[in-house]
Design a protein around this nucleic acid. Sequence first.
DNA 1: AATATAATTTAGACTCATCTAAAATATATT
DNA 2: AATATATTTTAGATGAGTCTAAATTATATT
Lengths: 222, 222
Amino acid sequence: MATQTEENYLKAIYHLSSENNGLVYTNDIAGSLSTTAASVTDMLRKLSEKSLLKYERYKGVRVTKKGEKLALNIIRKHRLWEVFLTEYLKFRWDEVHTMAEELEHVSSEELIERLDKLLNHPKFDPHGDPIPDVNGNVAGANFIALSLLEVNSSGLVAGVAEHAPEFLQYLEKTGFQLGVRFKVLEVHAFDRSMEIQIGKKQIHISYDIAKNILTRNQHDKN
Amino acid sequence: MATQTEENYLKAIYHLSSENNGLVYTNDIAGSLSTTAASVTDMLRKLSEKSLLKYERYKGVRVTKKGEKLALNIIRKHRLWEVFLTEYLKFRWDEVHTMAEELEHVSSEELIERLDKLLNHPKFDPHGDPIPDVNGNVAGANFIALSLLEVNSSGLVAGVAEHAPEFLQYLEKTGFQLGVRFKVLEVHAFDRSMEIQIGKKQIHISYDIAKNILTRNQHDKN
DNA sequence: AATATAATTTAGACTCATCTAAAATATATT
DNA sequence: AATATATTTTAGATGAGTCTAAATTATATT
């Protein structure tokens, strides 16, 4: 449907749109893709024509519903391939991005659904970023995995991305009930495990645990 | 290095070159790629420029050593991905070709070597076609897997593509010694198993067995 | 060997994605 | 509000890959 270049533009624009309340500017896109503003303008025309973007000249651009759906589909492919590359081919998490940039453009939807199944429907990629499902729903779109938080940030436990009894029991025992407040005291670089303050207790949790704990900012509504 | 289109041309030309003692003609290439002779001419120029082909206008074209090496590398990727698609994603052998056409252009060599390892260094793809190794050596280039022979063809057992003791013992027991003469009596379409005449015995062998038995024509030298 | 037919190449044009340089518009500054 | 600066768009050109139609070369036929 869309060419590889179009897909790359759309993906970049979608990522940028999370910043400035959804409005994205020509120069930012050019910067993000290491190309010129002139080239970007041409592409904005084309993607607008296909109603993937809503574009008014000189006024920036927004991703449409249709565009978002396609962008999420590409991101889904990218992140599923990243999981495959780390889990099956034993690449490190810092090696997979470039390869996934190519693999994400392979068109077969059936292929990606079967890959998703093989990988056991993962919710996060090796970097802790959420993997959209087939319909473009992002698990905990407004939530942030604990594994993504930095030192000194605090928040509330908002959900889990893993429902195995053993995991839930572990959370229960360590004090990670829903709604509880926590603070990140330290992140160990070598294995991305964390020291967390919960109430008066300080506990150590692995990266694998942290990425399955969804959090939200304590002042967020909803 | 080479663009996706260039790779597709080279691969098509390489495949055609096995027919007419290595000489390939513009029209055949155009036919094989469903394009026009004019487009082919342009591309022959370009691939010649890169010394992947030896081209003289109006006189046909040959693949150079360098071109062959690249072609075999692409074919290697294609066939390894086919094995992955059938073994891990459970696609049928008749479904994998189109997907592999896209995957074969993914550039990472490291990725393909790890895939090869994951798949246990397969010698044949799901269609029984041999998979070239990293150096472009094709296992039994002049041999033909028994699984590829048609009804009524006969030949000599020339080698094996599998060296597991159990397999070799099985061959021993059923009479498939090296150099022995056989004839294909029947091929069952539903599972591609075969009825084979060896000496006075008639035996039934599975596709998995047949694809690991390499044969040659009884009149071939060497 | 001359001519007819088939195969191939050239010429010229189109689309896609890109660029530089100039023009147009928006934003910031005085 | 007028001017300066920054951002964005337009104009025009380029390279890759493609096409159709015309010209050229090779092959087949008489």
